[in-house]
Design a binder for these strands. Sequence first.
DNA 1: ATGTCGATACTTTATCGA
Length: 260
Amino acid sequence: MKIATWNINGIKARIEGAKTWLAAASPDIACLQEIKCVDEAFPADAFEALGYNVSVHGQKGFNGVALLSKLPFDEVALRLAGDEEDLQARYLEAVVSVPSGVLRVVNIYLPNGNPVGTEKFAYKLAWMRRLRERVKALLELEEPLIIAGDFNVIPAPDDVYNPDAWIDDALFRPETRAHFQSLVNLGLTDAFRACHDEPHRYTFWDYQAGAWQKNRGLRIDHLLLSPQAADRLVKCEIDAAPRAWEKPSDHVPIWLELTL
DNA sequence: ATGTCGATACTTTATCGA
């Protein structure tokens, strides 16, 4: 079973690229972030035509996540527990049935948090604490579980082209990295790092200043696995090719294969 | 290099978020 995550940076602007990539890569489940549209505007029919069931949690203009699955959804949850007043569309959790039992997928668009020192950074850290609480509860189910998405976290200095230039950024602040480590320390496996130890492998290149051409990127899109999922991990790859396409997202897909 | 992109609005050029 192949599971992918991709911050597409606007589904209206990216529908052709998304269809092209999905048709070629054919993941069984795809987690999309930053769809930047309301539920009614999401082009579900285009993905249904490719064989996907579609679940959307959108909002006007910003954020927004969607789950595409060739397997039907048994359960869907659209909110991250812990703050009833948080209305930002950044979370979508689903359960599907697989031959070995169930697979649970949590699709997240974790807050960016810049600039540091503002309420945005406080919101990011609070959101990470809420995510940790949810994941802690889910791990007690002892199921294959994947937390996938745009984490807006650079886990280590080897995951950024120039760590010194990023030390004051919300994606790389010590507090951010500590919160991410605390999440992983619940017993999760970073699927990409379980399969690859080479430094400077990226999932994002800024649109500005020729970042893609100069390979000045960040590894901020992640697939974290429960022990039951990690035991079944076969491979995990970043597909950087779409970054060179016409009208690209600034992120590229990352996917993994599990034996389920 | 203040270098780009996507969405929005009392739109045709600004603003915001990333």
